[in-house]
Simulated scan of single mutants.
Amino acid sequence: MQVILKENVENLGHIGDIVKVAPGYARNYLIPRNFAIEATEKNAKALEHAKRQLEYKRNKVLEQARVLVAKIEGVSLSISHQAGEEGKLFGSVTNMELAELLKAQGVEIDRKKIVLAEPIKHVGEFIAVVKVHPEVTANLKVVVTKAE
């Protein structure tokens, strides 16, 4: 089944793309959530008219993502955890914990968009990648210290 995307869908495509998906995926997920419309001849003609609006929306979403990246990169998170003598943490710092700390700083982001190369299990400075938009990522500085 072919659909026209109305939103950016990760691993599928961008706004305005015509993609082929399984009928159940389109019928049960994409169309009810307004992520896509069916690619009929009528909708394809309407797409040409709507492309300008979609391009404007795409640019607006990209601009919002860049503003969010500037906010995220301006923030440095400090976390204190209990640790052993050699700086090894009891447990680890997770992306859920980072998302909560970002929310406390006024930047609300889904925890699934925070990517850690490997779990943080030692005291020190780390960089976490935040996938704000398919085209834009931010580097989040995380400082882990030993709790007293």
Rank of each mutant, 00 (worst) to 15 (best):
G84C: 07
A39L: 01
Q2A: 02
E63V: 14
E7S: 10
H14Q: 11
A46P: 10
V21N: 05
L5A: 00
P32T: 09
T145P: 04
A138W: 11
H14A: 14
V21E: 01
L89V: 01
F35P: 00
I15L: 00
K45V: 08
N95Y: 01
T94M: 08
K71D: 02
E118V: 00
E135S: 01
K88Y: 13
S80T: 03
K103P: 04
K131I: 12
V19I: 12
K103E: 13
H122P: 02
Q82F: 07
G16N: 11
V9H: 00
S76G: 15
E148N: 14
H122Y: 07
I109Q: 15
K112G: 02
K20W: 10
I4D: 13
L116R: 14
V132R: 00
L47Q: 08
I18D: 05
E63T: 12
Q105E: 10
Q82L: 12
S78H: 07
K88V: 14
V144H: 14
A22C: 12
K113R: 10
V9P: 01
E85D: 07
E100T: 08
A44V: 14
N11A: 09
L12R: 14
L12T: 05
P134Q: 05
S76T: 09
L101F: 04
E41R: 10
V143I: 15
L102G: 09
L102A: 13
H133R: 08
K121H: 14
V115Q: 13
N34M: 12
R111V: 03
P32Y: 02
P32L: 05
R58S: 10
A50R: 04
V136M: 03
I120G: 06
L30Q: 12
G124E: 00
N34H: 09
I37S: 03
K121Q: 10
K113T: 07
G106V: 11
V142E: 12
E100D: 02
S80P: 03
P23K: 07
I114G: 08
A26T: 05
G84M: 04
I15T: 00
A99N: 11
N28T: 03
A104E: 13
I127R: 05
K57V: 10
S78Q: 04
